[in-house]
Amino acid sequence: MTRAPQANDYAGDGTVEQDFGDTRVFHLGGTLRAKAAVRSADAGGVDDLSVAAADAAMKDLSGDFQNWMGDEVNRLIAAFEVFSDSPPNKRDIGPLFRAAHDIRGQAAVFGYPIASEIAGSLSKLLDKIEPDYLPLQLIAHHVDSVKAIYRNNIRDYANPVATQIIHNLRRAIDRVVEARQKAMAEEMKFRRTI
């Protein structure tokens, strides 16, 4: 016997539920839409006035960005010091990763896109390599580079020093990741033979 999908008003807010046996589909009743949607002549539904007002508010806030960036860089330096000073078997990668990850996400908003890219490279390194195999020297290069970018107020990709730093770090990371993957493959191969 065929069973038709059942439709009913779920929770009484206009949400319609269809029951297909192993799957249920809820078509939302549009409560939020009814609450906040207003007719507009703006193309694409983007409220240009709201966006412009938010951009203006961000501009007012931007006077603080240099100090905030300084705080984030100091947090990264402190996290690295704790990490490198700890015995290898007691290293907690969390605070260092979060400090790098935050700079990766925010530095571009603060006006330091190159620092964001370097911190992104460091995040990738910390994410891909097991803590026991992390090359401290390479992490230190990243932290020093972010520090140098901030202290020299380098904000422009046209700066040849910044471009060279990024290029060198990328090559160094690729080499480390490649070497680690190769070592793991060798280890697997060895285990299979014994």
Binding site: R33, K35, A36, A37, V38, R39, S40, A41, D42, A43, G44, G45, V46, D47, S50
Partner: peptide, 8 residues
């Protein structure tokens, strides 16, 4: 066309 009134 609609936009969102975020004040709500």
């Amino acid at each position: 066309m609609f936009r969102v009134d975020c004040s709500r």
